[in-house]
Design a protein around this nucleic acid. Structure first.
Lengths: 185, 185
DNA sequence: TTTCTCATGTAACGCGTTACATGATTAC
DNA sequence: GTAATCATGTAACGCGTTACATGAGAAA
């Protein structure tokens, strides 16, 4: 449950409520979770039981009392340990490529339209990534180095999608060339 | 349940048993499933109930009877429809980037070691991708165009990981430069 | 003799999602 | 008046994983 650590990371930046975390996670273009209540509130209960966070309740009228969580010393230690974990390769699901595996039943025009649609969805994704990289919401900038790391994280995502665009352009061009030269029927 | 369609795709290539499909999926460097029994056998039951595949039982002694599945006309139609679906952007989980978000608590050396380890796991992944792209196991080559599509699919994955390598190299270089110039403490 | 391959299937569990539930305040 | 924001939480479900279960034949 790596979302637990992501939450812990944010709480190590500053104290927050579950609701705050929910918004951050839901709005993020790079964190791969929807930010649903169930997951976040459960993770917070979990973190509290582990004593990696402490909870302060702020009374309110008109809305449920706010539970403000902040990281503990044990939490900080656990976070550091997790950060220093052996890195894993990315896990990617490209359902479009799974479609393309069996796309030979389509004619050239249909395939090209699919590729164009893919180009557009990926292009849109890049657009939103750039907007967020620009606005930098919820970005802790405690040191210049931290700032640099976060910038590189955004660049990583953008580069990934740019690579995707290049690939689509190449395949579209080659398919149309193959068409005119009757390399495939 | 997109694995259902991937299975349908393979059965549209040639008739197979659940066991065959399990191996193909488990061995694939690009399909994002482990190839566990539970999922595959259930999907086959599902596909059979939909009448997208038919089942022929071949009696055996010493091993369970083989259930050989092949695609039906309805199945072929359903596959074509799915292939022609609106493409989605890739869904990627880069847990390493989530670690890096909070890596400012580490010192330069620790970060660099993490990046190097990441470089290695990604490099390894590329290696296996290239091997598989080269050997081309379980690749239907019914037409030149289909062959081309599958090659481009492998290229897509390789390009993605290559982009990752470039990114790691850049960040490592810049971090070490920043270190000598005391841009971050 | 132990391990691998063939070949099917089930059980338990974890992570993640959508949808449900409540209710006051603020903005349009 | 309707919708969004604040703020908590629960229920039901789907997809995917590991592990369990069986049992013969072939290979190491």
């Amino acid at each position: 449950m790596s979302i637990k650590y992501v939450i812990l990371g944010y709480l190590g930046w500053k104290p927050m409520t579950g609701y705050d975390l929910k918004k951050i996670i839901a709005d993020s273009e790079t964190l791969p979770w929807s930010g649903n209540n169930n997951q976040i509130y459960k993770a917070l209960v979990q973190l509290h039981k582990d004593e990696w966070v402490r909870k302060v309740t702020e009374n309110q009228t008109g809305a449920p009392n706010r539970h403000i969580y902040s990281i503990t010393d044990e939490g900080e230690l656990a976070l550091r340990e997790w950060v220093d974990n052996e890195p894993e390769s990315p896990h990617t699901k490209k359902s479009f490529l799974n479609q393309l595996m069996w796309a030979d039943s389509l004619d050239i025009k249909e395939i090209d339209e699919l590729l164009e649609a893919y180009l557009n969805t990926v292009g849109e994704k890049i657009f939103f990534l750039r907007v967020q990289a620009d606005r930098k919401p919820n970005m802790p900038e405690r040191t210049p180095r931290e700032r640099y790391l976060w910038e590189m994280i955004y660049k990583n995502w953008i580069a990934q999608y740019e690579t995707e665009l290049d690939w689509v352009r190449q395949i579209r061009q080659e398919l149309s060339k193959g068409e005119t030269h009757r390399r495939w029927v």
